[in-house]
Nucleic acid binder design. Sequence first.
RNA 1: GGUGCCGUAGACAAAAUGGUAAAGUCACCUGUCUUUCAAGCAGGAAAUUGCGGGUUCGAUCCCCGUCGGCACUGCCA
Length: 488
Amino acid sequence: MTVRVRIAPSPTGNLHIGTARTAVFNWLFARHQGGKFILRIEDTDTERSRPEYTENIKSGLTWLGLNWDEGPFFQTNRLDLYKKAIQQLLDKGLAYRCYCTSEELEQMREAQKARKQAPRYDNRHRNLTEEEKAAFVAEGRRPVIRFKIEDERLIEWNDLVRGKVTWKASDLGGDMVIARAAENPEAEFGQPLYNLAVVVDDTDMGITHVVRGEDHIANTAKQILLYEALGAKVPEFAHTPLILNEKGQKLSKRDGVTSIDDFKEMGFLPEAMANYMSLLGWTPPDSTEEIFTLSQAAEKFDLDRVNKAGAKFDWAKLDWINSQYIHNMPADKLVELLVPYWQKAGYKVDLESDRPWLETLTALIGPSLTRLSDAPKESRLLLGESLEYSEDAIEQLQKEGVGEILTSIKEAIESYSQLTQDDAKDIVKKVTKQAKVKKGLVMRSLRAALMGELQGPDLIQSWLLLSQKGLDKVRLQQSLEQSMTSES
RNA sequence: GGUGCCGUAGACAAAAUGGUAAAGUCACCUGUCUUUCAAGCAGGAAAUUGCGGGUUCGAUCCCCGUCGGCACUGCCA
């Protein structure tokens, strides 16, 4: 039997991290089993569904490297299938028309709550007489279709993550709505609803394993009933733990950044995101190494190593994983990812005309980056024209003898048309000897003069970069003025 | 209110068919390298395995209870 799994997002928002993580698990499972990973867009909620969200979901999955083998299928293109299934249930007497108004239902639930009872539909229209039906119709009411749920049923399945799960049908809230009321008075019934559409699709698409978040557990119980009613084979189920926010609640849009787009924008790499998401609730068998690609994970992935407890989302760990990917990326590749962030920050960089310089810059600041978006901040002193001296840099510049040292360096530079690394080192050595001071003093002073700060990436490299832009002389001059004015 | 699930260090978590001092990773701290920061490397600290009881020679792993957290409880998905 070939394994077939699916990710079935609804296009009512951008690709959410929770959906993406579910997609990761499905993808890993499919790849490990040599099965198929299918994308299905659940757009039966026509009110809230938007094509741009579908696009966002597709591009997000693609960005993460979660390629699908079939689809995307759209539920709105498959309405006939659902209609047929609903009609079938109606014909078999397993479903019926319910004419309750939403006000009536709400009132009923309120009353139940007031009596401290569990809110549920009381199946009041299950056995309407023809006269009663006719009366509702005459009132202009349009019915929904409800699927009968027999309270005494016990639903059981062997969950691939949680083991044996049992559910009493009486805890499912009464007969469930599977189709909305028709908007068109001619129609038999309206839009099919989630649980019905899912079961029809999963059956039709030959889905063998349904891997989804544990917030769907109650739906699984309902859906098993539907599979049986439709005479379909029940697939295997696996319910993964939820991703939790800092407070331990299900991560939701209210927690700020939750869409994959946002993470991309913030400078996270797709490999890092996928890596981190796979670790949210799953551990590889020999788990001392936590940096791995999706394909490497797929080799070892198994649902029985998926954890049952919810996983708290940890920015620090994501950052660390992201930094690992950035640090291990060759500069010629990394630079291409950095350019947009520089440009967004207002720096006029042009990869085509300035590639070697930008690549050297990238190699220099690479190890300081946690997110791609750190690039402007980490490289601003090398990219920017003007310089603001920090307090300790000014202090450094005002130290005795520093002015002379900088002057010597400035003079030394004049004799080079193009400074090389060796030249730079030679100059430092010479000036150090000449001034009879420690090398540290020269380096610190030079750093203060060139960068305006006392800390940062390798100074010689930074100097060379500035030199290639002709900025070293300018800054040396500027710092000399700075030290003079302050000295007086 | 009901139902379900979960509860190992700040976070993610491993392991034991019940058996010697409970993996690993991040964060944190220290050292090292360096002109400096970061990265890297080396090391350190951190858990009476939610709590109480039971079974047992022995439980964190089994049983009972309890507390806490979360999820679900829609003509959303």
